[in-house]
Design a binder for these strands. Structure first.
Lengths: 259, 259
DNA sequence: TTTTGTTGCGTTATTAAGACGCAATGTAAA
DNA sequence: TTTACATTGCGTCTTAATAACGCAACAAAA
């Protein structure tokens, strides 16, 4: 996008965005990915502020909340089908990007002091689990660049995004204990050690290799493939994949399993 | 409140409420109480609509979400300290009380067609656990009367309040499995059979009396009193109460117990 | 005093979780 | 080609938690 067009779009967003979007409502997404045995989060570099931010956006006047989150995620990752869920809503009265955004406008030569963007926002938090290898991150109007960060090396973030991220992580850890959501973070085919690493990383503790395998197979939603991983030193582990039909049945019956 | 004053207040709310409150944001509360071995929910009778509604309200421009929920709950129940938590945010674009509220205005002789109250609302759901015996329900501007309903005999409700209630109940059931929240629904002193009935009612299944008692005592947060329940046929059960200091310690350590 | 229904504490059986042993496997080094 | 090696896959054993059930003590009513 060239600079002229960008400035025009931005100006329109500040001055006329409230005709499209609901006032006071935003959505922030915590996008988790798993790569090289690390749990990562996708962040955007907020322009001018220098700090980082969670991918976010606004809700169209006639749009479902879930739809809005889906749209935002699609724009940032290019993915169509995403495992996505709402986890909490943040409503600190200090949640306003006024300071950040005023710098913005000054920079593009607008002296507007009034904008829906300067008002207080209630933000609905969504968390997403994506297959790292399938994502092609794209930054938005307000950012220049996006990057994956290890969850233990999160940079300074704007507003209460630190808190939002923390809550999303706690939510993920809690959930992993009772529902097999981990698969969403891996490619279609994965080995047992890979799955275990994922669990160990998210739960932040070691698990016994042999008990882990047994418990995973006991859920009955995994299908062992005949194919083994190639090009690996030492014994080649088998590939597994999610047995979708059994998975759906288990969800209906209310799968209960604990790590 | 006399009729004149009521009409004036209501009119002001429709025409000038947006100067006080955030637009598009509301709060709905699912208030649970336990009485005569039944789990109940406090509902308001929506004026003119004929249907029932969850107690709700709006968020002041400089108010925390949690504060707003607390305020709303205080107004409806008279209680100061309430066990309260956010559980989900509802954002169906059809969430508008336009139809309901237009009947309202017509009835008080105002022909306004524009009001912040007619717009779409995103509603943040809060669930509250209260001591039934301490509550004195008070209805609000939009209702004439409030009543406790058994959770299995919920009347027809406005908008998506049925869905909100359902989600709150699921949330409560899920939580009761892992955290000892039940005490909030009982008086300070309670017997073991009373506590068990509460659990059985919420979880909707029978529990073994003897195993239940053992498990409850194993949490270490109950204190057995020397006093027994009087005036009861057959053997008198002991009273128990929550040991607050141990409860707080357990919360910090991250109490994990399962039903 | 006897009957009755419930409570409180106990025991036993069943199941799940956790800890560990060892042979099988496939690559890399000898 | 053979050997060494780190890892995998399946198995056993131990321990802890859960569920199922027995029975005497108790307080009010008959």
């Amino acid at each position: 996008m060239n600079t002229m067009k960008f400035e025009k779009e931005l100006k329109a967003h500040f001055l006329k965005g409230h005709e499209l979007y609901l006032r006071h409502i935003s959505i922030d997404c915590v996008i988790f990915g798993f790569h090289e045995n690390e749990l990562k989060v996708l962040l955007l570099k907020a322009k001018y502020a220098g700090k980082w931010a969670l991918p976010g956006g606004f809700v169209l006047k006639e749009e479902y909340l879930d739809e809005a989150a889906k749209r935002i995620l699609h724009e940032r990752t290019g993915l169509e089908k995403i495992y996505l869920q709402q986890f909490y809503t943040f409503g600190d009265p200090a949640r306003s990007t006024k300071k950040i955004n005023q710098g913005f406008l000054k920079n593009i030569g607008t002296s507007t002091t009034k904008s829906w963007m300067f008002e207080r926002f209630i933000s609905v938090g969504y968390s997403a689990l994506v297959d790292f290898t399938k994502v092609q991150p794209v930054s938005d109007l307000f950012s220049d660049g996006c990057e994956w960060f290890n969850i233990h090396e999160i940079p300074e973030m704007i507003l209460d995004h630190q808190e939002i991220f923390k809550k999303a992580l706690e939510n993920l850890q809690l959930q992993l204990n009772f529902q097999p959501v981990g698969y969403n973070l891996l490619p279609l085919k994965f080995t047992m050690p890979e799955l275990q690493k994922l669990y160990e990383t998210i739960l932040d503790r070691k698990l016994d290799r042999r008990n882990f395998q047994r418990k995973m197979m006991a859920t009955g939603i995994l299908k062992k493939l005949k194919e083994t991983k190639k090009g690996v030193a030492h014994k080649a582990p088998f590939y597994y994949k999610l047995d979708l039909s059994k998975y759906k049945k288990a969800l209906k019956a209310g799968m209960g399993f604990e790590m």
